[in-house]
């Protein structure tokens, strides 16, 4: 980590690890806010968990084949998302199936990582994230991915919303619920790949569900809830980083803990 003397240029500002961490958290919130809203509306929480846990297997495979970690994560998460979508469309009882898939992927990934030769792998960085070690290339991946996910959801917004409200009404309007499900699966795999560095595989689902749930109580329209979730995500990222900086707590879990605190407050306001 190079700690340059602060001057007025952007380059040196990005040299500050805290600024990079804040930008990473903010970028992630832009993607998890709207996507997390769909995860809440469609009751896909376990679906998100399974996809995120599969990321560890992706990390292991990427290390074994000397491929970029983000690519490995993306491919395996996409495969898991596709498998789960396929099973749910065939009418499988999803609760236990998702539990089996989610934990199998996590266990297999942890076993596979132990086979990676040579360098000792910092497992906790993949499980809980390492937001303070985000590099400038990481920021490009996170913001690029967030823009991609945001753009994808914005493009399909009306169709996604109609299919979420009622698959029957969607079909009658000429919308294919299966195709919209595929869009969400793709977006979820992308978010998992870019969130791995920030909050880690175990807490990605938390960043999807908690900000969106916190925004629910004050929102009157789906759009307000998605934007509110982005806002909660950004505040949580900044608050978590501040806590981590001043109280020396682990950054990723601190971000999630702040989001949980906001959720608690919003739930109390609602009463």
């Amino acid at each position: 980590m190079t700690m340059a003397t602060p001057t007025s240029s952007t380059t040196t500002m990005l040299d500050d690890f805290l600024v990079r961490a804040a930008l990473a958290g903010g970028g992630l919130a832009v993607a998890t806010g709207p996507l997390g809203s769909f995860v809440v509306w469609r009751r896909m929480a376990y679906f998100g968990d399974a996809t995120a846990h599969a990321a560890i297997l992706g990390v292991a495979l990427a290390l074994l084949f000397s491929a970029p970690v983000t690519l490995g994560t993306l491919v395996v998460s996409l495969a898991m998302g596709g498998a789960v979508s396929w099973l749910s469309m065939r009418g499988h009882a999803m609760d236990s199936t998702l539990g089996v898939l989610s934990h199998s992927a996590l266990a297999l990934g942890l076993v596979a990582i132990s086979f990676v030769p040579g360098v000792r792998v910092d497992l906790s960085a993949f499980l809980f994230g390492d937001i303070l070690a985000v590099t400038r290339p990481d920021l490009v991946v996170i913001w690029g991915g967030a823009a991609l996910v945001g753009g994808l959801l914005l493009w399909r917004w009306s169709r996604l919303l109609t299919a979420t409200l009622s698959p029957d009404l969607a079909v009658a309007s000429g919308i294919s619920p299966a195709r919209e499900q595929l869009v969400l699966t793709l977006a979820l795999a992308l978010v998992v790949a870019l969130a791995l560095k920030v909050v880690g595989a175990l807490l990605i689902a938390a960043m999807l569900i908690i900000p969106a749930s916190a925004a629910r109580s004050l929102a009157r329209t789906p759009e307000a809830m998605a934007l509110g979730a982005i806002g909660v995500g950004i505040v949580a990222a900044l608050g978590g980083l501040a806590a981590s900086f001043y109280a020396d707590t682990p950054a990723g879990p601190s971000v999630v803990a702040v989001a949980a605190a906001i959720f608690l407050v919003s739930a109390l306001i609602r009463r």
Binding site: W41, R43, R159, T164, L165, S166, R220, T221, A224
Partner: peptide, 26 residues
Amino acid sequence: LGYVPQKLPIDATLPMTVARFLNLPK
């Protein structure tokens, strides 16, 4: 074609005003 299903299950997690609903999908 206009379709009115037998039941429209409304999930409490999805905030939706009548006006917003009538603007879906167009």
